[in-house]
Structure formats: C-alpha cells, structure tokens
C-alpha cells in the first residue's frame, strides 16, 4: 500500500487543485481525477519520477453530459487510473502518444467507438468499425440504440 499512498501524496503536493478525488479502492488500484489540460503533465511526471511507461488501455465511458476517459497505467501490478472529462457535444483530447507510444491503438479505438477526437494523432484512421460505417454514429454512446445500419455492397475487385 506504500507506493499507492506515496503517489497520492506526491500528486496532491505537485499538482494541487488540478488533481482531486484520489481514491485507493483496494491494494494496487488508484483512481485519480485530473483536469483535462493537466493530463499530459501528470503523465510526464509519473513517467519521469516513477518510471511508469506501460499504458494498459484507455476506457471511454458515457456519463450523461460528459464523456469520461480513463487512462489505466500499470507498473508492477499497481494500476493508476487517471480520469478526465470532456463534454459530449464536442469531445476532444490531446494525443498522449508522444509520451506513451503504446497508446496509439487505444486512442484510435476511443475515436471510433465514442467519437472522441484525438488531436495530433500520428495516424488517424478508422480502426475497428467497418469501412462503410456511417459517420457520426458512435456505437458505445448511450443515446445510440442498437438498430439496423444499412449494409454495404459487394465491390468489384
């Protein structure tokens, strides 16, 4: 439990009002709310001070007006989840691939599934959804109910 507490204290001291709501739900699980604009600084700080370079994934959750993004960082079994919020009507977030290169695919994934625009992504393209998937429909948003999307046609080779 020491590492988790240490990180908690340290982040509170360094970033003050930019981090809040630090929750250690059980051993090796830390959830931290971060202001969107400070996310990269926190990531850099964690990388340089604690050597955290492994990002497990980015989870996007639809919560009413906002879209919540969770960056799950892992180091020796300790998982630190940084939570940021972005408004649902115009969701966007800066890319973190310059700090954590492993996040490339996860950023594309949230872009596809939740419609969060990732700014400055090195290779923005459709990753998961079909090529003929209509723009503006993001399947994991709560307001989109599973209904039929018109299928594509067989293209001549």
């Amino acid at each position: 439990m020491e590492v988790e507490k240490e990180i908690k204290e340290d982040l509170l001291k360094t970033f003050k009002e930019y981090v809040s709501n630090i929750k250690i739900s059980r051993a090796r699980r830390v959830f931290i709310d971060v202001k969107k604009e400070k996310l990269k600084d926190v990531l850099l700080h964690l990388r340089d001070k604690y050597g955290i370079t492994h990002i497990s994934t980015i989870t996007a959750v639809d919560v009413n007006e906002n879209i919540e993004l969770l960056y799950h960082l892992l180091k020796d079994g300790v998982c630190i989840s940084l939570r940021i919020h972005t408004p649902k009507n115009a969701p966007d977030v800066d890319t973190v691939t310059d700090i954590l290169p492993g996040a490339v695919l996860y950023e594309l994934e949230i872009q596809d599934m939740m419609g969060v625009v990732v700014k400055d992504h090195p290779d923005p393209k459709r990753l998961i959804l079909p090529d003929d998937w209509p723009d503006g429909i993001y399947p994991l948003r709560k307001d989109w109910k599973v209904d039929w999307v018109e299928g594509g046609e067989i293209k001549e080779e």
């Binding site: 079909p130 090529d131 999307v149 594509g152 046609e153 067989i154």
Partner: peptide, 11 residues
C-alpha cells in the same frame, strides 16, 4: 457474419 467481412465471404 460480421458487417465488415460479409462482402469478402460472398466473394
């Protein structure tokens, strides 16, 4: 049959 693959399956 997924939406992404059905055209190829048909081919």
């Amino acid at each position: 049959m997924t939406r992404q693959i059905w055209t190829r399956a048909r081919r």
